[in-house]
């Protein structure tokens, strides 16, 4: 097994570092001096919102394994609060508290 070989584990981590860092690094050098077409610029501006949508769904559905009710109530609270009042701390802390309470009761 991999975890029992310190050298192979280090190689694995090194490989994963490269596989993570290189995709993060290359665009910085590519985009810097480039004059972008308006549509491509708009494309890049929209990425945060589509990425967030796709990061939330469907991952959130399995975020609290085996506890769909707790997860649903927690995320509904976060969504409701963020929509109506904004802010980040209350939705995050509140969602954790709600999930914990539902698990405690259930």
């Amino acid at each position: 097994m991999l975890q029992n070989n310190p050298f192979l584990m280090f190689l694995l981590i090194l490989g994963m570092m490269a596989a993570t860092y290189i995709p993060r690094l290359i665009p910085f050098y590519m985009i810097q001096d480039l004059r972008l077409a308006p549509r491509f610029k708009r494309f890049l501006e929209l990425i945060p919102f589509t990425a967030l949508g796709a990061l939330i769904l469907p991952g959130v559905l399995t975020s609290v394994p085996g506890q769909p009710l707790a997860m649903t109530l927690g995320i509904i609270f976060a969504a409701f609060w963020a929509w109506c009042k904004g802010g980040i701390m209350v939705p995050v802390a509140g969602a954790i508290a709600i999930v914990y309470m539902v698990l405690l009761i259930g």
Binding site: F49, L52, S63, V64, P65, A78, W83, G94
Partner: peptide, 29 residues
């Protein structure tokens, strides 16, 4: 187990005000 929701709540808290502000963001997200 309850901490598993934290990152998703963070994403939701970031995204929803943007969705409220712009119908385009709402649609795309």
């Amino acid at each position: 187990a309850s901490l598993g929701i934290a990152l998703y709540a963070l994403f939701v808290a970031i995204l929803l005000p943007e969705m409220r502000r712009s119908r385009q963001v709402l649609l795309l997200a």
